[in-house]
Computed example of a mutant assay.
Amino acid sequence: MRESRRSWSRSRAHGRRSRLGVAALTAAVLAGGSALTGCDVLGPASDATKRASPSPRPTPVWNRSPASVAAVGDSITRGFDACVVLADCPEVSWSTGTDSEVRSLALRLLGAPAVTEHSWNLAVSGARMSDLPGQMIQAARRGPELVTVMVGANDACQDSAKQMTPVADFRTSFELSMRRLRAGAPRAQVYVSSVPDLKRLWSTGRGNPLGRQIWKLGICATMLGNSQDMSKRAQSRRALVYDRVVAYNGVLKDVCAKDRRCRYDGGAVFDYRFTGAQLSHWDWFHPSKNGQGRLAEIAYRNVTAARPPS
Rank of each mutant, 00 (worst) to 15 (best):
K289N: 04
D74I: 01
R17L: 15
R260S: 13
L198P: 05
D283A: 06
G38A: 13
S231V: 07
A71S: 13
R10A: 14
A24G: 14
V147W: 01
G250L: 00
A114N: 11
D155K: 03
G43K: 11
D259M: 05
R294F: 00
N302Q: 14
Q135T: 07
A127P: 05
A299C: 07
R19Y: 08
G79S: 02
S125F: 06
R212C: 06
D81A: 11
Q189N: 07
A247V: 01
P209E: 11
S4N: 12
S4G: 13
A35D: 12
V192Y: 01
S227I: 13
V41D: 09
A299P: 06
V61H: 02
V195Q: 04
A48S: 15
L86I: 08
S46P: 00
P44G: 09
D159H: 07
L20T: 12
A156G: 08
K162A: 15
R179V: 09
R17V: 12
G207A: 14
W94Y: 14
L110W: 01
M223T: 14
A48C: 06
R141P: 00
S231W: 07
C39E: 14
C262F: 07
A239C: 00
L110T: 01
S11K: 13
T148V: 12
A52L: 13
V84I: 11
A268K: 10
C83D: 05
W202A: 05
G225P: 04
G266D: 11
T98G: 10
Q189T: 06
Q163A: 15
P60T: 00
V192R: 03
H281P: 00
A67W: 04
G218C: 08
V22T: 12
D271V: 05
L30D: 00
M129F: 01
R2F: 14
E297S: 08
G38S: 11
Y300N: 07
T26S: 13
A24D: 00
R17Y: 08
T275H: 02
P66T: 07
L109C: 08
R103E: 12
Q228T: 15
S125Y: 05
G291W: 01
G143A: 07
S280N: 03
N226Q: 12
S125L: 00
L279V: 00
N154M: 06
N226E: 12
K258M: 11
V195S: 02
R294D: 10
P133N: 05
K162E: 15
G218F: 08
V29L: 15
S231H: 10
G134N: 10
S193A: 14
A28Y: 06
D229Y: 09
V115Q: 07
P113G: 08
W120P: 04
E117T: 14
S177G: 10
R179Q: 15
R171S: 10
Q163V: 00
S95H: 03
R64D: 09
S203P: 00
